[in-house]
Design a protein around this nucleic acid. Structure first.
Lengths: 140, 140
DNA sequence: CGACTATCGATAGTCGGCTAACGAAAGGAC
DNA sequence: GTCCTTTCGTTAGCCGACTATCGATAGTCG
């Protein structure tokens, strides 16, 4: 049963590496693309909101956003009405690569799951959901 | 199809976090337990050999081994016949927690996959293998 | 024997995840 | 109107993964 775990880890690592490589061509790293996905949907979110939507800790977003700001993908702006909040906004450049990144993402998923039949994908999805539910339940 | 990817990431994260928590009770972190697994099987391997068996880059092992040495889990010894090689040996303490770690690992896997039927586990395994094969193939 | 090459571990620096602790701002209670 | 608490983002530091580079040692070839 632990072999299943090993397979899981191995597959995840390969997928992540391939994603990173595909995105890197557009100057976006694998973690950054997740932030962009959310901001493309709704710009000007706070680090806390981003963290919550991505299921990640706030400092992860803060660090990532700093690198993304350096890379010219986002800008930090103080909320005018609440001085505690910081709003993260996309730059023109981030908007310009949206289609490329979305396509890269879709192509990669299509490639990764290409050898699975529709039924197998359903099975995989339901298995993943079951595992997630199981691990999220209070009993841990 | 990218939802499948998201589910994958989410499940992996939950599994990893739970594993780390379970191991940490015995002073072993999630990455270190992988190194121990290999060394319990064959002690005195070099960083390069460990890296190859775990499918990981050598510096990852070097850093991990340093932390494990600090934690009293392993010792570095220079190979007597080839001065380039370093051999990593388990300490008595590392051997003493072997059963605990192995059990924790097995318990966690059992728990994670408890809500899957035998057939579903088979499906999951074959899907993972297909994905791994696909991502490893030259076409990338 | 001596120089060149290959091999190997270690180091530096990046990325992305975490927890713990801190500091600034907002809001409530009195 | 002042404290006190809550709510934020940030910082610091750990873990684990990577690439690129360096330094030391082995091995080979002339």
């Amino acid at each position: 049963m632990t072999d299943l775990m090993r397979l899981f880890t191995r597959a995840h690592k390969l997928l992540r590496a391939a994603t990173d490589e595909a995105m890197s061509r557009y100057g976006v790293r694998v973690g950054q693309n997740l932030v962009l996905e959310v901001l493309w949907e709704q710009d000007g979110l706070t680090p806390g909101e981003l963290a919550e939507r991505l299921g990640v800790a706030t400092p992860t977003i803060v660090k990532s956003a700093s690198r993304m700001a350096t890379a010219g993908l986002v800008e930090r702006r103080r909320d005018p009405t609440d001085g505690r909040l910081v709003r993260i906004h996309l730059t023109e450049h981030a908007r310009s690569v949206q289609q490329d990144i979305a396509r890269a993402r879709a192509d990669l998923a299509a490639h990764a799951f290409a050898t699975l039949t529709a039924a197998e994908r359903k099975h995989l999805e339901s298995a993943l959901v079951k595992i997630i539910d199981r691990m999220q339940s209070p009993a841990g």
